[in-house]
Design a protein around this nucleic acid. Structure first.
Length: 417
RNA sequence: GCGGCAUUGGUGAAGUGGUUAACACGCUAGUUUGUGGCACUAGUAUGCAAGGGUUCGAUUCCCUUAUACCGCCCCA
């Protein structure tokens, strides 16, 4: 038997219904916030992610699906959504009309060891807002995310926030960190030794060395922010207060992609503690420029759809999904198919969710099938109905039967469904 | 990439080095040839992830591969 690739899974049955619901809700909320849908290719030139996401990030150094195509070009299956959208914005000059608000949905691929809530094909729902550097845009982006989660039924959401500052701030902070750790780096794990030069910020959220006393005494990024950066961060907090969004400041929150500047944040469900963050994002004011585009600020986030759905499941949150049929047509025999298929067509054209039995089962079997679909009404078609045009419509809840003329059927349904 | 643990039907699973792999749900058919969801009866893995090895004999022991889950790493 051929099995699925590691870290991938099939979406069908109840899960596919959930996925559809979550995506539809996300679209609705994005639309309410005046965001438009964008779809970019699953494959891009490898260079895009190297420059966009960052050469030294784990995502790029060891998690991308890279391949050389038949024309000897280096391509990568996208590991995240932001770089591709940024490329599309630059290439199509979408920055001509700012602000630009975009959302996307789709699969990303990372070559990781899978666990629960972590897959090699991960489905993300994300937004990007270009052209506004005012912190009000940060708050709007976060509020969209929180709103979406609330609407799904996840009420206890905390947003972790931190401010990484701009390039200059980060440089000073990095130096301070290096100075802080370098004399005692021998006490740290091998990963941290490597991080000291490459990305000292990551030392702070190392799980191996988190008890080391140097961690506690390490300088905080927040003390290195310029006056303006600090003011902006304070404004974000103020706006979040206005929007009544619960947040905590976590000055060790460092995200794994190099393009972030200033604000970074993660969405955490307080009700589940085994899945980590269900979404994250931040501001990336230098991304477009570093990809060869204009100097335009941007902010955005992505949700892990798989994680969101898994949190919904573990909290046993019932989504308002109605998958029931309105009408089911039950034929006594194959002789009625002619009549029924036309009736069915009418019902469907009038917007009813309708189906009919296509089987040669006996009556018991046919009724069993109706049960599966949970149809509101059943119409039984036999010789008499075909002859007279008077249909018997059975309410599947009260079991009441009503005689209705073929021509009056739609009226009947319009008033009752 | 490293370490651990697992893999039996449509599903949940019991089980053993030796003729027919338990039980439950589901599904199919019948009792019931135009009214079901109950009940009863019957059927439902030529097979125990895949391949190889040990053995007189393996689903059961060993090896390899694949996949799931957990920890590390990292992230959504």
């Amino acid at each position: 038997m051929i099995q699925k690739l590691k870290g991938t899974y099939d979406v069908y049955g109840d899960l596919s219904i959930k996925h559809n619901y979550v995506k539809k809700l996300f679209e609705e909320i994005c639309s309410n916030y005046n965001y438009n849908y964008i779809e970019t290719p699953l494959i891009e030139r490898s260079e895009l992610f190297h420059r966009g996401v960052g050469e030294t990030t784990d995502i790029v150094t060891k998690e991308t699906y890279d391949f050389v195509d038949r024309g000897n070009r280096n391509n990568t299956i996208r590991p995240e959504g932001t770089a591709g959208v940024a490329r599309a914005v630059i290439e199509n000059k979408l920055y001509n009309t700012l602000p630009l608000k975009l959302y996307y949905m789709g699969s990303m691929f990372r070559y990781e060891r899978p666990q629960k809530g972590r897959y090699r094909e991960l489905r993300q729902l994300g937004i990007e807002l270009y052209g506004v550097d005012n912190p009000i845009s940060d708050a709007e982006v976060i509020s969209l995310g929180v709103n979406f989660l609330n609407e799904l039924g996840l009420k206890n959401i905390t947003v972790k926030i931190n401010c990484l500052g701009g390039i200059e701030t980060r440089k000073k902070y990095k130096e301070a960190l290096i100075n802080h750790f370098k004399n005692n780096i021998d006490e740290f794990c091998d990963d941290c030794k490597e991080r000291l030069e490459k990305n000292p910020l990551r030392i702070l959220d190392c799980k191996v060395d988190n008890k080391n006393k140097l961690m506690k005494s390490a300088p905080s990024i927040l003390d290195f922010l310029t006056k303006e950066e600090k003011e902006n961060f304070d404004k974000v907090k103020k706006y979040l207060d206005v929007l009544d969004i619960k947040y905590v400041i976590d000055n060790t929150l460092v995200r794994g992609l190099d393009y972030y500047t200033n604000l970074v944040f993660e969405f955490i469900s307080d009700d589940v503690d085994d899945i980590g963050s269900i979404g994250g994002g931040g501001r990336y004011d230098n991304l477009l420029k570093s990809l060869g585009g204009p100097d335009i600020p941007s902010v955005g986030f992505a949700f892990g759809m798989d994680r969101v759905v898994s949190v919904l499941a573990s909290l046993e949150i019932k989504l308002p999904i109605n998958n029931d049929l309105d009408v089911y047509i039950l034929n006594i025999s194959e002789k009625e198919f002619n009549y029924s298929i036309e009736l069915l067509q009418n019902l469907r054209m009038c917007g009813y969710r309708a189906d009919m039995d296509l089987s040669n089962k006996n009556m018991k079997g046919k009724f069993k099938e109706v049960d599966r679909y949970n149809s509101k009404y059943i119409i039984i078609i036999g010789e008499d109905e075909v002859k007279t045009g008077i249909l018997t419509i059975k309410d599947n809840i009260t079991k009441e039967e009503t005689k209705v003329n073929y021509d009056d059927l739609i009226d009947f349904l319009d008033t009752n469904v």
